[in-house]
Design a protein around this nucleic acid. Structure first.
Lengths: 232, 232
DNA sequence: ATCAATATTAAGTAACTACATATTATGTCA
DNA sequence: TGACATAATATGTAGTTACTTAATATTGAT
């Protein structure tokens, strides 16, 4: 085998290597795609793919005309998968349970409006529900659903189907913000989650939009000890 | 303009639309790339790119021969950028400060060994340091560095340069695990972070490897109120 | 010298082609 | 019938060409 063609992954790894072995330093400009292609004896498209990947993972920055530069503020870029809670529970081998706690149509409080920024969401459905793993409280969700964008939710029997699942299956979103933080369990949440007030809870806030219009925002308080782990 | 060529993003969005408008349901098989290309009047490469993107974002699954299927357990896939702490602080317009608390060569405790799995890391440097924003405690890091993989760290003046920065700049990794959870501040951490014991802290654990060899593992306890926010 | 029009550059996108690879289906021989 | 080879199939990867787009540099007119 004289000189097997190198895949874009090889090209990527070579450049990756160069960057972090110090041959090329943060802020440095890399050669043009075409030159790298010539040097590595491959097509520009291959270099393009490699560079795209490096750019996606936060290692380099590319600008038309400007060329490709090694980022001077390298970031750790990680991907998280947040599954539907039912699947998450069943994946772990536990039995999934669901319990509706409250449901009411209401004008959203200011904190919820803030989550949506400019676009005022109008009247919303406020749903509180508990997800269970083997009958133990797992995640407590406090959700607001925009009735302008998702009026069909009013016809859904939320004591049967969780809003979580219904929305994921029926209301596609094209924009999403996630927010993670730690919070002390207050009296009410502690009771519902079967833990003690003051316990540290990981909270996940998720807000979704479809073409600019708000769909839903959820504040999920997880059971004590819950961990989020990045994809490899 | 009769029929402008459609980009791979248009193709992606059209399919995305189909999937979540219910025209195609979770588990369903999508037509072959070639057929979609014909239908949409574009090249297969364009469909390929579109499909790749949908697969990357967790919406569909592709298998050679098997074809493309809509995932039956859709996940919310989010990307997080975790910058170097100095940059994070300065980005917010605060002054960055750094303070070394402790430094010692030590055999790692079992919990640290566990983070690395099988590969035993050997002797390690244990470093504790505090990152400050406007002279207020921001992140407390408790780090273990593998001396086999990164012996040069012993020559670094860690009272000047943070291990965080030195490692990011000098020790490339090719594998990384992140873990997020909430934890109550214990007495010691509360003091260092200038808060009260029992406060809920968001903890970020990061472990890195290079070609299978452990580099470092950090447990970063963030100031109360700290939030992680996903990239758009 | 200033500003605007124009050219140049380097990445971005897309078409078409060809072959690779993984997987499934089929067929043949013992 | 069962094991194994073979064919068919759909995605994956790579090359080549051509054109687009955004950013920069140059030119030229005032």
């Amino acid at each position: 085998m004289p000189d097997t063609r190198r895949s874009w992954k090889e090209v990527r790894d070579r450049i990756h290597q160069k960057i972090l072995s110090g041959q090329v330093r943060p802020g440095d400009k890399l050669p043009r795609d075409a030159d790298i292609a010539a040097e590595m004896n491959c097509a520009r498209t291959t270099v393009q793919r490699a560079m795209q990947d490096l750019a996606d993972s936060g290692l380099v920055e590319r600008r038309r005309k400007g060329g490709t530069h090694v980022r001077r503020d390298p970031v750790t870029r990680a991907t998280l998968d947040i599954p539907i809670t039912r699947n998450e529970v069943e994946q772990k081998g536990n039995t999934y349970g669901y319990q509706l706690i409250g449901r009411e149509t209401l004008a959203p409080p200011h904190s919820v409006q803030a989550a949506f920024g400019q676009n005022l969401p109008g009247p919303m459905l406020h749903v509180q529900a508990l997800h269970l793993a083997d009958a133990r409280p797992y995640i407590l969700e406090d959700r607001w659903i925009c009735l302008q964008t998702a009026p069909e939710i009013l016809d859904v029997d939320l004591s049967e189907t969780s809003a979580n699942e219904w929305l994921v299956m029926n209301k596609p979103y094209d924009d999403l913000t996630l927010r993670f933080y730690a919070e002390k369990a207050d009296e009410k949440r502690a009771t519902l989650l079967g833990t003690d007030p003051g316990d540290a809870l990981l909270v996940i806030e998720r807000t979704t939009w479809i073409s600019g219009a708000p769909i839903t925002t959820v504040k999920s308080s997880t059971e004590p000890g819950y961990q989020l782990i990045s994809r490899s």
